[in-house]
Amino acid sequence: MIEMLEKLTGGFGPAGEESIVKEIVKSELEEHSDEMWEDKLGNLVIQRKGGDSELKIMLAAHIDEIGLMITHIEEEGFLRFTPVGGVKKKNVPHKSFVFSDGIKGTVGVEDLDNDDKLKFEKMYMDIGAEDKEEAEKLVSVGDTAVYARNFVNAGGRIIANSLDDRAGCAALVKLMQGLKESPHDLYCVFTVQEEVGCRGAKTAAYDINPDIALAVDVTATGDTPESRPREMTLGEGAAIKVMDRGSISHPQIKNLLEKLAKDAGIEYQFEVLEFGATDAHSMQLTRGGVPSGTLSIPCRYIHTPHEMIDGNDLTSTVELLEEFVSCEEISEI
C-alpha cells in the first residue's frame, strides 16, 4: 500500500485539475470494478455491485489538493499568485512548487518590515526565468502549481505532500482491491474540488442518491509540542469522526464503526475537530438528507508540503472500512 500511496501523492492534482490522479486510480482499479465512470463535475466513480441487499453505500475520498494559481507575470519574469483552497500564507514562502508539466519554482517574499505584513500579494514565484518573455514560454496566467512532490518513508511513518487526501484515496483503492464480496451496492467516489468547498461530493451524492455515505479523509492531531488540545494521536488507530465544523456524524454510523472496530480488534480513536469539514458535509445535506459519517486518518502538518501519517493508522482504516461495507448491521441505519 505504501508504494501505491507514493504513486498517488506523486500525481499533480489541484482542485479543478484532477485528471492525472484520476488516471492513477483508474489503472489501480480497472480490474476491481463492475463499472467505472466520470460524472459531469469530474468525480471518478467506481461501482461494485452487491448481493441481495438493496442498500447503496457511497464512500468518498477527495483526489484534489490545495495549490497556487498564477494571476500575473511580471516584466522581470516573476509570477504572482493567489491561493486555491485553504493554503496558509505562512506555509508558502521559500517552499518549492511544481506545475502540471513539471516546471518548478520557489516562492520568494518582498522585503517586509515585519512578518505580520506577510500576505499572498507580497509573495512571488521564481521559476528561474530571466524575463516575462521567457516566463511566458513556461507558464501562463491561470496555471496552477502544487507543493513539489516529496515522499519519505520514515520507519512506518510517511512524510509527504498531499496525504490530505491521497491517504484516503489509497485506503479506498486498497479496500476495493482486497474486497471479495459485499451484500451491498458500493459506490467508491474519488471526488474533485473538496478543498474549495466539498463541491464534487455534492453533485456526486445527488447523482448516486445513496442510503449511507462515508467520507475518508485526514484529520489534525493534538500530539505535537504545545499543540492545541485534541484527542487525536498519530499511531493510535483509525479516527471515527464525531463532529467537525461541517458535519455531525450520524450517531448510528459512529456507533456502528466503533462496534465493528471493537469486534474485529481494529485500533480506533474518536475524533472531534473544532474546524474543518469533509465531503460528509455535502453528502449529508443532499436531496432529502443522507446518513453520513467520516473515517479519518490522523495526520500532522496538514496543508504543508510535509504532512505525516502513520502506516498503521492507514491499515486500521482499510480494515475498518472492509468491516463497514460488508456488515449486515449497516442496513439497520
Binding site: D39, K40, L41, T71, V84, R199, T203, A204, Y206, D207
Partner: peptide, 23 residues
C-alpha cells in the same frame, strides 16, 4: 482576458452544483 483573481463569485457558483452538476 482571464479574470486574474480568485476573489468574488456569482450565480455560476450555485448553478454548477445543482442536481448532478452543470458544467
Amino acid at each position: 482576458q482571464f479574470r486574474r483573481t480568485t476573489a468574488g463569485g456569482n450565480d455560476a457558483g450555485v448553478i454548477h452544483l445543482t442536481r448532478e452538476g452543470i458544467p
